[in-house]
Design a protein around this nucleic acid. Structure first.
Length: 580
DNA sequence: ACTATTGGCGCG
DNA sequence: AAAGCGCGCCAATAGT
């Protein structure tokens, strides 16, 4: 099918839309007009018939979403440029409007401050797009790079949509969890009941009246004074000590963490109240490509660190379900695909790859399989890794060879690539100066030790980069394919959720599928996705998520016999999906 | 009173 | 210096 690239550029008052199929040139419109125009254009051409090319998804798509329009495909020039500038033999300088770091998706209400001088013209945007396409065509593997750019851009759409839709939350349940653990909500600045009791107990056991357990320095001093052989107050160190204070102190730390990271003030800050028939929502900013390896980051609310203990507060709307899908051991599988390691692929064929390692006689227990594999992926050498790694190298020479070589490249200061072509950032001047210092004639042992340690650090980074980066690419393709197929699903005509969703957004463009009426992605956590869906569609959604995982595997690795098994659960609350 | 760093811990 | 990667966020502390 022929795809038309239509440029959309934000302006002070709205957007310029430049459709090559329209003769009278770019048209300037308000955001509402643009949203309606885009929705209509998609109806005519089909979602797959048009690709929206814009400088930055955050600054454009949030406005379209606010006006009720969703799009099928886009090109996010900023994200694509970030990939291409290292991926092509002759990089070009980013135009100034792409240079600044990710622009925060502005809240729809206060978007008037888009500075005009950072806004490109239609011609500039089209020129950049042409440059990017030419760069892709000239690259070593245009096909893979094209897939990566498409997946990255699709991710940008999903990130904006997930922000707009929010993660279904239940304040009351969250509050109940906090109250059960900590006691009733205290007045501002006061310790909750349970935490205060533990503090008293700790002070008594350490004979330190007035001790503040939150102060590491004084706490460490008190602990050492009480005879504990420790150099920090870290949990792992305390665990090894036999002293009556250890148990209450660990409990204190656990609860203090819960309170400060996901307590009542978190709830007040990040969870917005729901409406009739629609529960509360947690909104965060997802940052696609926010991690060097291509993983997403988030900003606000610690969305990627929602503790297991709080996941019972993630609750589907009445009549809806959460389809939670978790991919098993993506990184070693991605490694098997990259290296063309049939033996490792076969070990993962039937589900649990670690169990496969045991069944193949490579190691004795699942735990050791996991430790050994993670050591290979992360560059671990200590402890058990010493005996496990040689066995893995013998059993899987192709896979281990690939990560070992990536590590060597890093130690020498080089860069590596993920499977689809994301390049690791090169070491900076500081790195080279430390390496250079060690080569000087008057270098001392300290200089040499520093240089060696730094080179090894770099090697562990590049070793992991290829694996984590490729796993992130698989996950992105998985999610993008899931989104595509969810959009093709028609909501049941008599489904109350869909009807409610439509009427609730009646002012927005009809038929453009506001997120609330049909199944939509609400969460993404590296190798895990959550879809919020009307209950009658849950089974179909689960199937789509499954199929999309296989499709992603084929997109990346073609016919190579590699499986990406999922654990899929259809649940009322996120906590129920925890399979441990 | 403000910002930057550190230790610690949550997630994958 | 927790062995072993990638993050974000918080309170305490150090620095200005």
């Amino acid at each position: 099918m022929r795809v038309v690239d239509v440029v959309v550029v934000p302006t002070r008052a709205g957007a310029l839309v430049a459709d090559p199929g329209v003769e009278h040139g770019p048209a300037e419109m308000s955001w509402d007009e643009a949203a309606a125009w885009i929705a209509n254009r998609q109806r005519v051409a089909g979602e797959d018939g048009v690709r929206w090319v814009w400088p930055d998804t955050g600054s454009v798509y949030a406005r379209l979403l606010a006006a009720g329009t969703r799009v099928g495909r886009c090109v996010d020039l900023r994200l694509c440029h970030a990939i291409l500038r290292f991926a092509t033999p002759k990089p070009w300088t980013a135009p100034p409007w792409l240079a600044p770091a990710p622009v925060e998706a502005p809240a729809p209400t206060l978007l008037d401050d888009l500075t005009p001088d950072t806004t490109p013209t239609v011609e500039e945007v089209r020129a950049e797009h042409d440059r990017q396409q030419a760069a892709v065509a000239a690259a070593d593997d245009p096909g893979r790079l094209r897939l990566l750019l498409a997946a990255e851009s699709a991710g940008a759409l999903i990130a904006a949509e997930m922000r707009a839709d929010g993660l279904p939350w239940d304040r009351a349940r969250h509050d109940a969890i906090l109250t059960a653990e900590l006691g009733p909500r205290p007045p501002r600045g006061m310790r909750p009941e349970r935490l205060e009791q533990l503090a008293v107990e700790i002070r008594e056991l350490l004979h330190s009246p007035g001790l503040n357990p939150d102060s590491q320095v004084t706490l460490l001093r008190a602990l050492r004074h009480a005879g504990l052989d420790i150099t920090s107050t870290a949990k792992w160190e305390l665990t090894g000590q036999a002293h009556p204070v250890v148990a209450p102190l660990l409990e204190y730390k656990r609860l203090a963490r819960l309170l400060s990271a996901n307590g009542w003030s978190w709830l007040d800050t990040w969870v917005e109240p729901g409406t009739l028939g629609r529960s509360d929502r947690f909104r965060t900013d997802y940052v696609p490509g926010g991690v060097v390896t291509g993983r997403w980051a988030t900003s606000g609310g610690g969305a990627l660190q929602i503790p297991k203990a709080v996941r019972a507060a993630v609750v589907a709307d009445p009549g809806w379900r959460l389809v939670v899908a978790d991919a098993a051991q993506v990184e070693p599988r991605a490694l098997a695909g990259m290296a063309g390691d049939l033996a490792l692929a076969r070990a993962g064929q039937d589900g649990d790859l670690y169990a496969g390692l045991v069944a193949s006689g490579v190691v004795e227990t699942r735990d050791r399989a996991k430790v050994g594999m993670l050591s290979a992926l992360y560059g671990g050498t200590a402890g058990e890794a010493g005996v496990l790694l040689p066995r893995l190298r013998r059993a899987y020479p192709l896979a281990t060879g690939l990560v070992d070589r990536a590590a060597q490249v890093g130690e020498r200061g080089g860069t590596v690539r993920s499977w689809l072509g994301r390049t690791s950032p090169p070491p900076g001047p500081a790195w080279h100066s430390v390496q250079g210092r060690a080569g000087e004639t008057d270098a001392d042992q300290g200089d040499e030790r520093r240089a060696r340690a730094q080179a090894r650090d770099r090697g562990r980074f590049t070793r992991n980069f290829v694996v984590q980066g490729t796993a992130a690419e698989w996950a992105l393709c998985w999610m993008a394919e899931t989104r595509r197929r969810l959009r093709a699903l028609t909501p049941l005509a008599d489904d109350p959720g869909a009807a409610r969703g439509r009427s609730a957004t009646a002012t927005s463009g009809a038929g453009t599928a506001p997120g609330q009426g049909r199944p939509h992605l609400v969460f993404f956590l590296h190798d895990e996705i959550v879809v919020h869906t009307p209950e009658p569609l849950a089974a179909q959604v689960a199937e789509i998520v499954q199929d999309s995982a296989s499709t992603a595997g084929r997109l990346l690795f073609g016919g190579f016999p590699l499986s990406f098994p999922l654990h899929v659960a259809t649940v009322q609350t996120y906590a129920e999906a925890d399979k441990t």
